[in-house]
Simulated scan of single mutants.
Amino acid sequence: MVSAGNPRAVRARAAAPPALAPTLRFSAAIGALLLVVPALVFAGDSGPARIDRWVQHLVDGSAAGAWDLAHRVDWLGEPVGRAMMVLAVTALCLVAKRPALAATAVVGIAAVSVLSTVLKPIVDRRIHDGFLSYPSGHTAAVTAAAMVVGLLLADLLHAGAVTGPAIALATVVLGGGLMAWAQITLTAHYPTDVLGGFGCALLVVPLTAAAIDQLVRLRTVRPTRNGGTPA
């Protein structure tokens, strides 16, 4: 067994802070519902639902200049913007000495990007002359990045069972909500498409964090040939 004074004995911080474990399980369950239910309801559609028209009408009343701001926000979901966003969030995690969370940022954002792309032809919902629209990959990616930032802040601030979820929720609502607003403002997606993107991130990021934490634990306690733990 490694001595307590050895730096190698210091375990890496978990990607998912223990205080947020119940919240992340709840997030994954809600995310699955937000992703799957609209997919089933709107599969094969090529037009807005009643709720889409209602939300679109509300967003269309945004202040002057909203279109330009929405375009700037939308850039974060484009390939170059998304790559820079991943690099920025990963760098923040590494500077804060949270390598497991940095891995969650890379794998999680990549996973939501792949999942949202794969689901589009499966759900086959279309907008603007046949473009596949469900779920919104832009919303999924930015929500995932915001969720990682929320986990980082909660961990750095040693947030508890109440403040931790509040911090994570605030970052998710701010980041994901901003991109959702941009997609609706630009009519790039129906409002229910961005709901699916939001759910995609809420589902994938907690699962990614849990998988990475489990991998770290397995590597940490890997037995040696004589049955002991590695020195």
Results as ranks from 00 to 15, higher is better:
Trp181Pro: 06
Ala211Val: 06
Gly31Phe: 01
Gly47Arg: 07
Leu178Ala: 15
Leu156Pro: 07
Arg222Cys: 06
Pro135Asn: 09
Val194Gly: 07
Leu94Pro: 04
Ala105Gly: 11
Ala188Ile: 07
Gly47Trp: 03
Leu20Thr: 07
Val205Cys: 02
Pro22Leu: 09
Lys120Cys: 08
Gly228Ala: 11
Ala210Tyr: 09
Thr192Asn: 08
Thr139Met: 06
Ala209Tyr: 09
Gly227Lys: 08
Leu169Pro: 04
Arg13Phe: 05
Thr163Phe: 00
Leu169Lys: 03
Ala39Gly: 15
Val149Tyr: 03
Ala182Ser: 14
Ala159Phe: 05
Trp67Ala: 15
Thr229Cys: 02
Ile122Ser: 04
Asn226Phe: 02
Ile30Gln: 03
Ala182Asp: 09
Met179Asp: 04
Asp68Ala: 15
Val55Pro: 13
Glu78Leu: 05
Ser133Asp: 10
Ala66Asp: 04
Leu40Asp: 00
Val41Cys: 01
Pro135Lys: 07
Ala63Gln: 09
Leu101Ile: 03
Leu174Tyr: 08
Pro223Ile: 02
Ala188Met: 09
Arg8Ser: 12
Val41Asn: 02
Leu132Trp: 08
Asn226Cys: 03
Arg8Glu: 11
Asp193Ile: 10
Arg82Ile: 00
Leu76Lys: 01
Leu69Val: 14
Leu174Thr: 13
Ile122Val: 15
Ala91Leu: 13
Val112Ser: 02
Lys97Asn: 14
Ile127Gln: 09
Ala4Val: 14
Asp68His: 15
Val80Trp: 12
His128Glu: 12
Trp181Val: 07
Arg50Ser: 13
Ala83Val: 09
Ala9His: 12
Ala141Pro: 00
Trp181Ile: 08
Pro223Asp: 08
Gly164Leu: 09
Leu178Gln: 10
Pro223Lys: 04
His189Asn: 11
Ala145Tyr: 02
Val73Gly: 06
Arg11Gly: 06
Gly77Thr: 01
Met85His: 03
Thr143Met: 04
His158Lys: 14
Val73His: 05
Val204His: 01
Thr163Arg: 14
Leu186Tyr: 09
Leu152Pro: 10
Gly31Cys: 01
His128Ala: 15
Arg8Asn: 13
Arg50Ala: 15
Gly228Gln: 10
Asp60Lys: 11
Gly196Arg: 06
Thr220Val: 08
Ser113Arg: 07
Pro135Asp: 11
Ala12Gln: 12
Gly228Lys: 07
Thr139Lys: 06
His57Phe: 11
Val205Tyr: 02
His57Trp: 12
Arg126Cys: 02
Gly137Asp: 06
Leu152Asp: 05
Met84Pro: 00
Thr208Asn: 03
Thr224Gln: 13
Gly5Met: 12
Val204Gly: 01
Arg217Asp: 13
Ser113Met: 04
Trp75Ile: 03
Ala161Lys: 14
Ser27Ile: 00
Gly150Glu: 06
Ser27Lys: 04
Ala88Val: 12
Val148Met: 05
Ser133Cys: 09
Phe198Leu: 13
Ala180Tyr: 08
Arg13Gln: 13
Val89Ala: 09
Thr229Val: 08
Gly228Arg: 10
Thr192Cys: 11
Gly196Gln: 07
Leu115Ile: 04
